[in-house]
Design a protein around this nucleic acid. Structure first.
Lengths: 267, 267
DNA sequence: AACCAAGTTTCATTATTTGAAACCAAATTT
DNA sequence: AAATTTGGTTTCAAATAATGAAACTTGGTT
C-alpha cells in the first residue's frame, strides 16, 4: 500500500509485518493469505523468516501470528534514540503545565502523523490521539504544520498520499484546499486545527525546525470549543514558539559523544 | 550474534537494524561499516532499503542513521497486540497496590528477559529494570522462572546462550549451577532473585503459563534487603499465583473478537 | 472410507543480491 | 594549487536466493 513493496525482499517482508500489525490481534495464516498479494508458499516463507527473527510470534496452540517481542525492544531503542520524545519531554511537560492544556508532540511517518508524546492537561479531554498512534496529516494541527514546511517536492508526494476523508464540516477535502492552507501556515509560522478531525477539538500547532529549516516534528496545544477558542489559543503562540526553538536547540546540540567536550578543539 | 543472520536477506537486514539500535545514538555509515560483517556496497544498500522503508531515519545534515519512526508505530501495535502488557496491566497494578512493592512483567526475547511492564511501588527504589529494556535471564527472578518451565530442548538452547557474567557474589556462573536452580524452581512453582543481578535487590517470581504449560511470561514482586527479606516475599506467593492465573485466563479467553471480516483490507 | 480445508514442502525457473572495483566529491596534506 | 586521503556512491557479471505452481501432509468432517 503506502511504501509497501518496492524495496526487494526486505520491503516485502516488512509489508507482511505491517499487514499482521493491521489486524490488531493474532491472525491465522489463511486470514493473511486472503488479503495478501503473495502466493501461499511465498507468504508462508515470509512468516517463517519473520517468526524465526522474533519480529513475529507464533502461537502454536492457537496457530496464530502476532507481532513479536523484538519489536518492543527495537522500539524502546527507537524511542530513546531517534524520536524527539526523550529530548523534548521536559519542554513538553513544562509547556503543558504552563498553559494548562494538552500538548502533543508529533513526527511525520510516511505521510501520516505519528504522535510520539502527549502531555495531558490537568483534567484531560477524551480524544483520539495517543502516543504511538498515527493519525491523518491533512486535518490535524501538527500534521499541517509539518506539511507546510516540507520541501516542495516532498510536500507534493505527501499531499498525493492523503485520503481527504471528510471527518467534519471543516475538514479540507482536496489538494488545492490544503495547499492554500499550507501557504497560510507558512506565512504565519503556525497553524490551527479548526475542528477538522474531531468536532469540538481545536488546536494551535507549530513546526519544530532545524536552523536550516528542515522539519523535525511539530508541537500543538489542544483544547475544545467548550473550554476556549482559537483567539485564546493564538495567544499561546509565543510560548509554543519558544518551546519549539528550545527543542530544536537541544536536538542540534546533541552532537556525537566523542566531540562533546573540549570546546576549542574544532575550527 | 544472537539470531542475527541466517534467514536470507531479510535476516541480514534486520541484523543491520539491530546494529544501528545497539549504538544508542545516530551513527555514521563508516562507523557501521567498521563493525559490520558486510562489504561496503552491501551495507550501503541495506541502509538505503531500510531508510526508504522508514525503519531507519537518515539525517542529511549530520549524515547519520537512526532508528526510524515506523518502528515506533509497529511497536505500539506490538505492545497492544502481542505482549502480555495490556491484558495483564490491571492485574499487575492491583498486585502492586496490594503488596505495596514494585511488580515486573516480563517475556522472553531470544534468550533474554524483556520487561514489558513495570508497576512501581509507592516509593520506588532505583534499579536497572525498565519497561522495554532487556536484561539477563540467568540472574533475574523473572528470567529464571521462565527458563524453568521451557521445554527441555528449548531450555538447553537458551542456557547455551547465557553469558554467566558474575554481577554479584550470588550470581549463578555456570550452566550446571543454573540447571539445579531451575529444577528447584520447577519443584516449588516459583523462584527468587537472591541479589544475583544487583546487590540489595531481591524478588520472588512466578511464571505465567497456559493450561498446557507453555511459558507466556513471568511476574515478580521486587524489593530490597533494606526493606524486607526473602521469607517475607515468599508469603506473597499465593497472591502472585492468583495474579499469574488470572492473567493466563484472561489471555486464553481472548479468542477472536469476531469472525466477521468486514469491508477493509481489500485493495 | 472418502473428503475437505488448512498448512507445509518441493524444485525448476527467474529474479535478486552480492561485492570487488571503479568512481566521485569534499576535505586535508604537501 | 596539485596531490592525496577520506567517506560515500555506483557499476556489473557472477553467485545466490526468492519464487510459486503443484504436490503433499495433517487433522478434522461428512
Amino acid at each position: 500500500m503506502t511504501a509497501g513493496s518496492r524495496d526487494g525482499t526486505v520491503g516485502k517482508a516488512l509489508g507482511v509485518l505491517d499487514q499482521v500489525a493491521s489486524f490488531e490481534r493474532p491472525v491465522r495464516f489463511s486470514e493473511l493469505l486472503e488479503a495478501s498479494p503473495f502466493p501461499k508458499a511465498t507468504l508462508y516463507r515470509f512468516l517463517q523468516t519473520l517468526t524465526s527473527q522474533n519480529m513475529l510470534q507464533f502461537d502454536p496452540e492457537m496457530q496464530t501470528y502476532a507481532l513479536g517481542v523484538r519489536l518492543v525492544r527495537l522500539a524502546h531503542a527507537a524511542w530513546t534514540q531517534s524520536s524527539l520524545a526523550p529530548i523534548a519531554k521536559t519542554h513538553v511537560e513544562a509547556l503543558s503545565r504552563s498553559v494548562g492544556e494538552t500538548v502533543h508532540l508529533a513526527q511525520l511517518d510516511n505521510a501520516q502523523v505519528l504522535y510520539v508524546d502527549k502531555q495531558n492537561a490537568v483534567n484531560p479531554l477524551p480524544m483520539y490521539s495517543q502516543a504511538g498512534k498515527v493519525g491523518p496529516a491533512y486535518c490535524t494541527g501538527v500534521g499541517k504544520a509539518m506539511l507546510a514546511y516540507l520541501e516542495p517536492d516532498e510536500q507534493d508526494k505527501v499531499i498525493a498520499q492523503q485520503s481527504f476523508h471528510k471527518f467534519t464540516e471543516t475538514t479540507h477535502t482536496s489538494a488545492e484546499s490544503i495547499r492554500i492552507e499550507l501557504s497560510n501556515i507558512r506565512a504565519n509560522g503556525y497553524g490551527f486545527d479548526r475542528e477538522e478531525h474531531e468536532p469540538g477539538i481545536i488546536c494551535v500547532a507549530m513546526p519544530i525546525l532545524t536552523k536550516r529549516g528542515r522539519v523535525l516534528g511539530a508541537l500543538s496545544v489542544t483544547s475544545s470549543t467548550s473550554r476556549t477558542n482559537l483567539a485564546a489559543l493564538e495567544k499561546l503562540v509565543p510560548q509554543l514558539k519558544a518551546t519549539a526553538n528550545a527543542i530544536a536547540d537541544d536536538l542540534q546540540s546533541w552532537r556525537f559523544p566523542d566531540q562533546q567536550q573540549s570546546p576549542v578543539s574544532r575550527a
